[in-house]
């Protein structure tokens, strides 16, 4: 991807199937120029993860993904010694003196690379996605600090492993927990929110070009109406796209009450939400036109 200007970054992202708004394009641009990690926050389903994927497509870099979860530790994120292989080495060595074996078994050969290590050690530049960082605990965040500011990892037995190429790092968070100041300080911050009407329509049209424009507009309006309600889980962008595809399959020509009730489960996925949406939005839609005769 040519990273000459913000507009070029935006175009490249669009070609990779991601319509970035001004701030997303600018922050992606800055991330590449300044070599700083990006912390992306926002409600679920606004395309935080997708941004990282699009960046990797647009820059032709491999995507290395670390999905965070409660209880994730260094062994699963950074590296682990392959102790089975080490044991085999010791057994196979038989009569070797201890010094030799000791030097041997703590070698790159016995290292199992986990995503973070992989991203650092990769000879090609990569895009590193650390997804849902808020799911981990603070200790893990602290461990990330070295990686994020210096792009290096210290292994006691081997020494430092520094990145040979600068990875683009994207961290996403659903804001379920306040991240530490230290982590935020090292990142550029990007808040992604639900897109406006026009932009969401462009997104839907980009992914389902066959959908008639009028129907797409209607769909986006209805989704916006639903998001305005106080729901447990408001529909995400991905769900709007799914809905658009469903409507295509159903061969619907307009979103009337009947089509809406049939396909509502694509975008609303909570029992209580379904009732609320049916009650508030369903009634606003037109009755289906009955065939004459």
């Amino acid at each position: 991807m040519a990273d000459g200007s913000v507009a070029e970054v935006k175009d490249a992202l669009a070609q990779a199937g991601y319509l970035a708004d001004e701030s997303a394009a600018l922050v992606s641009f800055l991330a590449q120029r300044l070599g700083k990690p990006v912390l992306v926050e926002g409600p679920a389903g606004v395309g935080k993860t997708e941004l990282a994927k699009a960046l990797s497509r647009a820059t032709d870099r491999q995507l290395v993904r670390l999905q965070c979860y409660e209880g994730l530790d260094e062994a699963k994120a950074l590296y682990e010694w392959n102790y089975r292989k080490q044991l085999l080495r010791i057994q196979a060595g038989g009569e070797d003196c201890w010094e030799d074996v000791h030097g041997d078994i703590f070698d790159k050969e016995f290292l199992l690379e986990r995503p973070l290590m992989q991203a650092i050690a990769s000879p090609e530049p990569v895009v590193l996605l650390i997804d849902e960082i808020d799911k981990t605990d603070q200790e893990f965040e602290a461990m990330l600090l070295e990686l994020l500011s210096d792009f290096q990892i210290t292994i006691p037995e081997l020494g430092q492993v520094s990145a040979t190429t600068m990875p683009i790092v994207v961290l996403t968070s659903n804001n379920s927990r306040e991240l530490t100041e230290a982590l935020k300080r090292r990142c550029l911050y990007l808040w992604l929110d639900y897109p406006g009407l026009e932009r969401e329509m462009e997104i839907v049209r980009l992914h389902t070009p066959e959908l008639p424009e009028a129907l797409a507009r209607r769909l986006v309006e209805v989704v916006e109406m639903i998001r305005a309600l106080d729901l447990k889980k408001p529909p995400s962008i991905a769900e709007s796209i799914d809905w658009a595809r469903t409507l295509l399959l159903m061969g619907a020509e307009d979103i009337d009450r009947k089509t809406f009730e049939q396909s509502m489960s694509i975008i609303v996925k909570h029992r209580t939400d379904i009732d609320l949406v049916a009650e508030r939005v369903g009634v606003k839609l037109a009755e289906p036109v009955r065939p004459q005769g």
Partner: peptide, 8 residues
Amino acid sequence: AATIAKSQ
């Protein structure tokens, strides 16, 4: 904003 404001 991206460099200074680090939360919503």
